[in-house]
Design a protein around this nucleic acid. Structure first.
Lengths: 112, 112
DNA sequence: GTATATACATAAGAAAATTATGTATATTTT
DNA sequence: AAAATATACATAATTTTCTTATGTATATAC
């Protein structure tokens, strides 16, 4: 995803969050939206993205519809019912994770 | 470090931050302090901790002093001059990372 | 005296990314 | 009109980073 390896482990919840907020999305669109939202900070690589999306599909977290736009393929992903439940859990974990990081990186403010 | 793989990639900056804030520390102490600060959220495993500390020492980021407390060894770590510089960089990266996560997980607030 | 806590260390394996490569169409730049 | 960039998917090889398991040894609590 990026040189600075901080993002390792966060890709799945990030994608779930995107799908939760924006409904149906295709892979390339996800990479562009994340790049935009984070002002270029976070660049998802294809080698990380597509295998993960395929895994989520296998697990029944997302479902897909393939469309032809002009002559080009697009594979749209959306959360299943199970996926929505899973996303709620993932968001709670993210919240706790981010709070923990805050405690460490900004102890004075965090404890106040 | 934990089941929920979110923390992957964050261990090194966390340790650097601890050493920056508390000066001289030993490994076990780091694990306990992180556990305390994060209210049990973040449990650093020995298999992650010690190899990383050794790597940081090899890289000249930290230096060590071994002491005997009673009959038991303690290996104290502290930041070198290069380590302090490296820590500043790592903290800037952490800040950007956390901001990016905020943008994604909490888009409305983050954009305000 | 048994369990838990303190304190280090390393090896095997798994998880999650990066980098490289491949295919193909569409658009922009020169 | 050719070349470069952008769009859009995919997979394989490798690297990074962690978990799990194992090992040694002392100290403290029950």
């Amino acid at each position: 995803m990026k040189k600075s390896s901080l993002y390792k482990g966060c890709l799945e919840p990030i994608l779930l969050r995107l799908l939760k907020d924006h409904g149906r999305m295709y892979g390339y669109q996800m990479t562009q939206m994340v790049k935009d939202i984070t002002k270029g900070e976070l660049n998802i690589t294809e080698g990380a993205l597509y295998p993960l999306l395929h895994k989520l599909e296998e697990q029944g977290i997302v479902e897909t519809e393939t469309e032809m736009i002009g002559n080009r393929m697009r594979k749209y992903y959306s959360l299943t019912k199970a996926g929505k439940k899973q996303t709620s859990i993932a968001m709670e974990e993210m919240k706790a994770f981010m709070q923990s990081l805050e405690y460490i990186v900004n102890p004075k403010i965090a404890l106040g």
